[in-house]
Amino acid sequence: MKANDRNNWLQEDHDLADEFQDVASAWQKEKQKVPNLQGVLDRKIRKFAYAHIEDDLQHHWLFGQSPRLATAATLFFAIGVYFVFSLPEEGRALEPTRKVDSSIERRQSVTRLANQREADLNLAREVWEKERWEQTQKATASGWVKLSLIVSDQGNIEKIDVVESCAKRNGHCEEDSDLNTYAIDVVKRKSYKPGVHEELILSNRQGQPN
């Protein structure tokens, strides 16, 4: 309240008191007529007031003599509800676990992909190395035979096929049965692990096996 406003109202109070002073004086005598308060009511109110604060303190969730289970349960429930509703809409309480799980899965997937890729690269490198070696050998040799063979679990050669054969004559490749027979004999003398294999047998001289 502004000082000016307060002063105005103080003045109003004074003016009113002055104007009706006679009424006020007459009324002052009337005040005596109020009967005394009953003692019973007095005691009743005091008792209620004492009981109220005792009850308040008794049931105070922290300072009470025995904080009740219901209070504790309510508190935990409220915290739970708050926690659930404070999370984003999707997933609610499961969200943190899902986040961790998906992170682990993503990392494992990346590792798996990296391993696979490395393995693929190694295989490709091996194939490429082999092909390059074969090309180099073919380019320098006077003749060659490429064979495919199947080796049994016992290490015996079960089948030999000539995949490709080249006996160079006048700069051209020709089929040469002697060269093929020679290549098959060479393979038969060698030992292989079980499985399917390919073997390249070279001849250094023109028309003659190596």
Binding site: R46, A49, Y50, I53, E54, D56, L57
Partner: peptide, 9 residues
């Protein structure tokens, strides 16, 4: 009184 003082009441 709120803090439990009966004499205050």
């Amino acid at each position: 009184y709120r803090r439990g003082d009966k004499r205050a009441f």
